[in-house]
Structures are given as C-alpha cells and as structure tokens.
Amino acid sequence: MIELERLTKRYGEFTAVKDLSLRVSRGEIFGFLGPNAAGKTTTIRMMMGLLQPTAGRIRLGGFDLAEQPLEAKRLCGFVPDRPFLYEKLTAVEFLRFCGDLYEVAGPAREARIAELLETFDLADWSGELIESFSHGMKQRLAFTAALLHEPSVLVVDEPMVGMDPRGARVLRATLRSLADRGATLFLSTHSLEIAEALCDRIGIIRSAHLVAVGTLAELRARVGDGAGLEEIFLKLTGAEDLLEVIQALRA
C-alpha cells in the first residue's frame, strides 16, 4: 500500500532524508522510529504532499503521488504532530468541512461524525469552537477528521503526543481495529515503547538514513538477545555512548 523508492530530501547542503526505500503492506501497522531530527517528519510530510522530494518516488495505494496526487490523497488520512486546525470553527463544522474535502456527504457523514466524536470522547464538545480545546482534544479531533472518510492509508506523526491514558487506550484500540479491517498504518514516534505496543514492524531512521527494518524480535536479535527496549533503540540509533552514560548513572 505504501511504497517509498529512493526518497531523498535536501535543503541546500543539508540532507534531511537520503535514499529511503520502504514498502508497507495492506493491513500492517508500521512504526517509523528515530531520534529527534532524524528525518521522520520530513519523510511523512513528503508522503502527504506537503513537501516536494528532491528525488525518489512515493506510491500510495498504487497511485504515484507526483503523477496522480488527488487519487493518492483520497486514500489517505493524516494526523500531524502539532494539530493546527481551523480555530474559529466548531468541532462539528470542522468535521463537515473535512467531509466535503474528501467527498463524504449526506446522512452517512452525520452518522459517522457522531460515532467518531463519541469514540474520541468529544461528543459534549461538538458545538464548541476549536480554539477553546486543549492540545489533547485537538489531537483527538485531528484523528476524528483523518478517520472520517475511512482511509485505506493512515499516516500519523507522533500519535501519542498530548494524549491522556484513556485517550491512548481508545486510540490503540481504534488503530488496531482499522488495521484488522485492512487499512495500512504508518506511525512515526521516537518512543520504542509506543512502537512495541502498536506496531507489527518497525523501521529505524538515523541521520537521514533508514538503518534497520523488521519486527521487534528481528531487531532484538540484531542487537543481541536479551536487550531491553532502551538498549535496542540507543544501539540502533547510534547512541551507544549515551547508553554507557545511562549505565554509569544507574551504577
């Protein structure tokens, strides 16, 4: 469902993503992991058409994003790490607007909006302006909007930012059920715990390069059996020095 082929993004002399190739299958939850400034958000912004790649190809659901952008985008839902929404609309108005953008109309749309607002615990706030929402509520509303048209591909940048424990549980269940129904999920995070809790497969990006891809068991085998999550992450992201410091502090 998601195919990235030698994807590269350069800003002048600086390379944010280099030669990144990746395939994510239908029904799979893929975790995209890496430290800050590794290139996760840049990759995602390219996948969603917000950034123009310097080189490489992106195919979503079989559609080339450069050649058939509307067809590719129609399949996708996107939740950015910072949910900037239209502050002067109410939650329901915003969702109706998104429905129009993705051609979801009529009574089916209204029923879907009510169902999603209920799921994400926003029903009581449906008539309030978004500007009065907390960060977590905005994040949940962004999820609601992204799921409104039942996307085949859902791309989420840092899914748990701003979520409280209850929101996180609801989100996990929702994402799992989406994948079970055949949707492909691409989640970026800098936390291996979150990736472990949600993902089938994990890709690790470090300094613009994809350095490892596999299930958690495969990654663990690569680092060495018995390694903890923190150890795996630090080793794969090239922060062994930091690992030694942490061990020294613990000792």
Binding site: M48, G49, L50, P69, L70, E71, K73, R74, C76, F78, P80, R82, F84, L85, Y86, E87, C98, L101, Y102, E103, A145
Partner: peptide, 11 residues
C-alpha cells in the same frame, strides 16, 4: 498553520 489540511486533501 492549518494550511496542511488543504495541502494533504484530494483538492
């Protein structure tokens, strides 16, 4: 900053 909504939509 909500411009991403239009940029990522099939529009």
């Amino acid at each position: 900053r909500a411009f991403w909504i239009l940029q990522s939509a099939p529009l």
